[in-house]
Design a protein around this nucleic acid. Sequence first.
DNA 1: CATTGTGAACTCATTCACAGCG
DNA 2: CGCTGTGAATGAGTTCACAATG
Lengths: 211, 211
Amino acid sequence: MNKKGKIPNATITRLSIYYRQLELLEFDGYRMVSSDKLAWLCQVNSAQVRKDLGYFGEFGIRGVGYDVIELQAEIKKILAINREWNLGVVGIGKLGSALLEHENLSVRGFKCVAAFDNAPGKIGKVLSSGLTVRPIANLDRSIRDLDIEIGVITTPASAAQSVANLLLDAHVNAILNFSPTRITVPDCCLVENMDFTVTLDILTYKLHQSS
Amino acid sequence: MNKKGKIPNATITRLSIYYRQLELLEFDGYRMVSSDKLAWLCQVNSAQVRKDLGYFGEFGIRGVGYDVIELQAEIKKILAINREWNLGVVGIGKLGSALLEHENLSVRGFKCVAAFDNAPGKIGKVLSSGLTVRPIANLDRSIRDLDIEIGVITTPASAAQSVANLLLDAHVNAILNFSPTRITVPDCCLVENMDFTVTLDILTYKLHQSS
DNA sequence: CATTGTGAACTCATTCACAGCG
DNA sequence: CGCTGTGAATGAGTTCACAATG
C-alpha cells in the first residue's frame, strides 16, 4: 500500500486528526481544501500534511488542493476505519460503563458488543446500553462468538495483566489499556495506553516549568 | 533545574512511568534498582533511563544503582507531583462522572474539587463523590474560590472550545481535553488531549497492516 | 568490578525549498 | 499561477560505547 519505508507513528495520529477536520469542513460545505488550510486547522506545518499523505499516495490536485470527500475516503481506507470493529470491554466500573455508552465510539464504527467483569454482583446485570455483563471466565468463548478484535481494559491496575493474558489466549491482539499500569504482551499483540494520570503528570511538569 | 537544553516530551512521559514502577519495586521490598532492571520493567533501553534521569541530575551510585525511595522523591519533585493539584471537571456526563469518582486521581494527589455543567437538570445535583454540580456560568468565580489550576473538559466536541475559552478567562492555563476535537488556545495555555477514538484509529491501522 | 553518566553516532521526524504539474 | 509532491537540510530523540567512579 505505501510506497516504501516505515511510516512515523505520529503520522497515523495526524491522519486521524485530519479526518476529523475534513468531516467538519464537509459539514461546513467545503468541497476542496489546501494543505495550507488543513494544516492551519490541525495546528501543524503544511509540508507535514503533504508528506503524511504522500506516504500513501497522491491524493491532491496541483494548483487546487484536495477533494474534501475523497480525502476522507482515502484516510478511512488507510486507517482501516472504513468498516466496523467489535470491542469487548473488560472491567465494568464507572469508566467501563461510561465507555460502553459513549456515543462517539459507535458513531465512528467501534461497536462495544460485550461487557465483562468478575464481581458476582455485576455478572448478569443488564446495562443501560442493553448489554448484559458476562463473567470474565467466559471471555474466550464470548470473544470467539462475537468476533471481538479489540479488547478494552478498564480494570484496576492489579487486574490488568491477567486480563491481558486472557485476551491473548482468546487471540485478541489489539488492546486499549486504560489501567494505570503497563502490560507485557508478545510482539504479535498491539497495545495502546490511555493513562490519564500520566498525562496529568505531563501537565503538572509543564505548569511547574512555566512558573 | 535541568543542566541545559530542552528536555524531550517523551522523557517526561517516561519519568511518570518509571515512578509507577518504583512504587511497585518499593512495595515488593526493593531498596536499590539498576537502570537495567528499571528499563526492563518499563520496556525501554537502559541508556534511555540513565539519559532521562541525567537531564535533571545525578541520582545514582556507580556500581550499585538507584535508591528506590530516593529516586521516587526526585521524580516527584521533577514532575511537581510532590504536592496536590485541584482539578475542575467540566461536562458531567458518564465520562465526567467516572473521572470524578476515579480513585487513581485522588491517590495521586489530583483532587477534583468542582463539577460543572450547564444542563438545567444537572445543576444542583449532588454527585456520589459529594460534589454539587455548578452552573458553567459560575466557572470564573468557582475557579478562583477553589484554587483550580487544571481544567478537565469532558463535554461533547461541540462545547469544548467555548468551555476552553471560559477556562482561559478564569486564568486556568492547563487543560486536559477528553473531547474528540482539538481546541485552540494561546501559547500561555497548556493542553493535553486524551482522545480515545484517535487511539483506536492507531490500533485499527496497525491491525490492518499486520494482517 | 558492576553500574552510572555522557559525548558521539545513529535513527527517526519535521521543515525547507523548489521542481513539477493541473 | 498556485498548490502539490518530494529530495535535501535540519532538528529531535534514541542508542552505542566507554571513561569515570563509588
